[in-house]
């Protein structure tokens, strides 16, 4: 009885995996085809192979390239200078360097904004195209848009500062994989600090998250890597 069963099953079990593989390949193929076609019709961006991305990555000093179709800026509505509504259209058709921080941050955030300004100066000195710089608060409860605007303008009048509702900002950070975690002060219950992603994000003109500049941020390595990236992803 036992042997009979085994014999009956054997031919089937030989064919089943092949059938599954064929089906997956077929469906996957159709899926990829649809995805590629959709990608090509809405965005004129090339799809980069793993080998191509690896080759670009090898030239970078302090930056991590992210895979194609990894994360994109979702539709959002935040608040910009003078209480104007700012949407994801902010990121269309230009390269952007984005940093999430908060104004009650005396060490990491000012240093990062200072470095970003030096990066822009250096790119300008070399007559290269500059990204827009965007600072988004992860602490909108304390950081009103006026506070954020004053804060970023101190580093450069050209920087874009954004605030918004905690809900809208949390949606954006979670879609982009940005961390913002609140820790209450042990000594002062009215005070808290925000642990946040240290990397600067590089968003491409198709609003995709293209790379992460890791901390500690250094002007020369960011300039070098930015040049490599925009040359590679033209």
């Amino acid at each position: 009885m036992k042997a009979e069963n085994t014999e009956n099953l054997q031919p089937k079990s030989r064919w089943l995996p092949a059938l599954v593989i064929a089906t997956v390949a077929l469906v996957g193929g159709i899926g990829a085809n649809i995805w590629l076609n959709t990608g090509a019709s809405t965005e004129s961006v090339d799809v980069y192979s793993d080998a191509e991305l690896k080759q670009i990555q090898e030239q970078l000093v302090a930056t991590t390239i992210l895979p194609d179709n990894f994360k994109s800026v979702p539709a959002f509505e935040l608040i910009g200078a003078n209480n104007t509504a700012v949407t994801d259209a902010l990121f269309a058709d230009k390269w952007s360097m984005v940093f999430f921080g908060f104004t009650h941050c005396p060490d990491v955030c000012p240093t990062t904004l200072y470095v970003m300004n030096s990066v822009i100066d250096e790119l300008r000195e070399q007559s290269l195209s500059e990204p827009q710089v965007v600072f988004i608060t992860v602490d909108p409860v304390r950081d009103t848009i006026d506070k954020v605007t004053d804060y970023v303008n101190y580093f450069s009048e050209e920087f874009v500062g954004l605030s918004g509702t905690l809900n809208n900002i949390t949606q954006l950070t979670s879609k982009l994989g940005v961390v913002a975690s609140f820790t209450a002060s042990e000594t002062d219950p009215n005070n808290y600090t925000v642990d946040h992603t240290a990397s600067m994000l590089l968003i491409d003109p198709q609003k995709n998250l293209r790379a992460k500049f890791g901390a500690p941020h250094e002007v020369d390595s960011i300039v070098k890597d930015f040049k490599t990236i925009i040359a590679s992803f033209q």
Partner: peptide, 14 residues
């Protein structure tokens, strides 16, 4: 305070 970056997260520890 001590500023520290751990797993790409900037923290401030009293």
């Amino acid at each position: 305070h001590l500023s520290k970056v751990e797993n790409d997260v900037a923290k401030m520890i009293k």
